[in-house]
Simulated assay, not measured.
Amino acid sequence: MTDGKVKARLKWACRRGMLELDVLFIPFVNEAYDDLSEQDKLTFERLLTCQDPELFAWFMGHEACEDTELNAMVQFILGRVKV
């Protein structure tokens, strides 16, 4: 799959049912995804397969993600937002 098609698919997957998640994911794909390592890109894509209530809880700090790779990606995305 070409890079353009991958980004288009990711942008579509970033459109969630919750505005709080949309405002995190869409800018992240636009501004940071291309600079990720291949492993981190796969981790981000895996993160997008999680359910919205789980994602919301992780990003809002209500729960910690038990998967260390996913948790690291959550923290990386949050760190970009807080800068």
Rank of each mutant, 00 (worst) to 15 (best):
residue 7 K to F: 06
residue 3 D to F: 08
residue 28 F to C: 02
residue 26 I to P: 02
residue 5 K to C: 10
residue 25 F to H: 00
residue 6 V to G: 00
residue 31 E to G: 03
residue 5 K to E: 15
residue 22 D to Q: 09
residue 19 L to G: 04
residue 4 G to C: 03
residue 25 F to M: 04
residue 6 V to N: 09
residue 11 K to T: 10
residue 33 Y to P: 00
residue 16 R to W: 01
residue 25 F to I: 02
residue 16 R to Y: 02
residue 19 L to T: 14
residue 9 R to T: 02
residue 15 R to N: 11
residue 19 L to I: 11
residue 28 F to M: 10
residue 19 L to M: 12
residue 9 R to A: 15
residue 23 V to H: 05
residue 29 V to N: 03
residue 12 W to A: 15
residue 3 D to N: 13
residue 5 K to A: 15
residue 20 E to T: 05
residue 9 R to C: 01
residue 30 N to Q: 10
residue 27 P to W: 01
residue 22 D to S: 03
residue 22 D to G: 01
residue 20 E to F: 06
residue 15 R to E: 12
residue 21 L to S: 00
residue 15 R to K: 15
residue 22 D to K: 03
residue 14 C to I: 03
residue 27 P to H: 03
residue 25 F to D: 01
residue 15 R to C: 11
residue 20 E to S: 13
residue 16 R to H: 11
residue 4 G to K: 13
residue 9 R to H: 08
residue 31 E to Y: 08
residue 21 L to C: 07
residue 30 N to P: 00
residue 8 A to Q: 15
residue 18 M to V: 11
residue 26 I to D: 06
residue 21 L to N: 02
residue 30 N to G: 05
residue 23 V to P: 00
residue 10 L to R: 06
residue 12 W to S: 11
residue 30 N to D: 13
residue 3 D to R: 15
residue 25 F to C: 05
residue 16 R to A: 04
residue 3 D to V: 13
residue 6 V to D: 06
residue 31 E to F: 05
residue 14 C to T: 07
residue 12 W to G: 07
residue 10 L to Q: 09
residue 4 G to I: 12
residue 4 G to Q: 14
residue 33 Y to D: 02
residue 28 F to Q: 02
residue 4 G to P: 02
residue 19 L to D: 07
residue 8 A to W: 07
residue 30 N to R: 07
residue 21 L to G: 06
residue 12 W to D: 10
residue 30 N to A: 11
residue 3 D to P: 09
residue 23 V to I: 15
residue 18 M to E: 06
residue 6 V to Y: 02
residue 18 M to L: 14
residue 19 L to V: 11
